[in-house]
């Protein structure tokens, strides 16, 4: 996969690795941090924290529900409890525990779902988290994060730990193109604008940010200047940035490695509909389960491509 290569982006680490390294490196700075795993720490990368801090790492087996409620109990004794699994298993298998043990009491629990999206590739649909953003957005009190690259993931891991209260962060399996410099100045809840433009706005998260930048280059070659926003915080949404995009560019395309139901696209469309209506085209997985395949093949087949974003931008502009 070489997303962003033709516009000069270099490939960084997977966001799950950047998260795992940051978590390990932050252990001393956050002495109240404990980590609970459900037998996938070598996939989610919390294992690296566990190897360095065995007394602060609990392995509870393939039991996501218990893991989440137990983390809430640990948090109730004044700790920050981070628990992690594949995004699909964590958010779907333990949804009621996230709702009742974490969200409702505003427990200081950090939930990290790895293997988000279809770019995990060959393992196929059972392992693909494509509904996690919708589920996590639907829990009051939760902050929902989706870093675009390794640099963002490292910074946002720290910010997640600094934040008092429940947070969900999704990470990805493949190496991700770097769209941010090292230690980017990102703030939870504040959109990061990566490119200025007045004709259309591309609002993306995760791996799709790099594709949005590619699409912006292609549009620019045709004289269309696209604003590109990395919406790394899905909730609370930076509504001011969305409203400004609607007012100043009049057309929006969203792009996410998630179902079009309930994720970034619907959050943005809900915001514009209420505050500053404009056409919003949503790039994402279109109400279907995906399949096994190579990551690049899957992204192409399921309509997650720079070409799809370009086409959607033209459509949105035509509707304006």
């Amino acid at each position: 996969m070489n997303i962003g290569e033709r516009i000069g982006l270099s490939l960084g680490k997977p966001t799950r690795n950047a998260f795992g390294e940051a978590l390990r490196d932050l252990a001393d700075e956050f002495p109240k941090l404990v980590v609970v795993d459900a037998d996938v720490g070598n996939s989610t990368r919390t294992q690296w924290f566990g190897e360095a801090n065995p007394d602060r790492f609990f392995q509870v087996g393939i039991a996501e529900s218990n893991m989440v409620s137990m983390a809430a109990g640990l948090a109730a004794t004044g700790r920050q409890a981070l628990c992690s699994s594949f995004a699909a298993f964590l958010t779907a298998n333990a949804f009621d525990q996230i709702r009742m043990s974490v969200g409702f009491p505003r427990a200081n629990v950090k939930l990290v779902g790895s293997h988000a999206g279809i770019s995990i590739g060959e393992d196929g649909p059972s392992q693909m988290g494509i509904e996690d953003l919708a589920l996590m957005r639907a829990v009051p009190n939760l902050t929902v994060l989706c870093p675009a690259d390794a640099h963002a993931a490292a910074v946002m891991t720290r910010q997640m730990l600094e934040h008092e209260g429940p947070v969900y962060m999704r990470t990805g399996r493949p190496k991700a193109p770097l769209v941010h410099p090292e230690s980017p100045d990102l703030r939870l809840g504040r959109a990061a604008q990566l490119r200025e433009g007045g004709d259309v706005t591309l609002i993306a998260c995760g791996l799709m940010v790099a594709m949005a930048l590619e699409a912006a280059e292609d549009l620019s070659a045709d004289g269309i200047e696209a604003r590109v926003i990395d919406m790394h915080t899905i909730k609370p949404l930076d509504e001011a940035a969305v409203i400004a995009a609607s007012r100043e560019t009049g057309a929006i395309v969203t792009a996410e490695e998630h179902l079009v139901q309930g994720g970034l696209g619907e959050a943005v469309a809900g915001c514009t509909a209420a505050n500053a209506p404009c056409p919003v085209r949503r790039i994402g997985v279109q109400d279907t389960f995906a399949e096994s395949g190579k990551p690049a093949e899957l992204l192409e087949k399921y309509g997650l491509s720079a070409a799809a974003i370009v086409a959607a931008a033209r459509e949105a502009m035509a509707l304006r």
Binding site: M70, A72, A76, T77, M100, S101
Partner: peptide, 24 residues
């Protein structure tokens, strides 16, 4: 000590609390 009502979660929450108390 805990928000309950969805049955089945209290033992896990209590386990986490007890482990936290042990760390204390």
């Amino acid at each position: 000590e805990a928000s309950t009502g969805s049955l089945g979660q209290g033992l896990s929450i209590s386990l986490g609390m007890a482990m936290g108390q042990r760390l204390d």
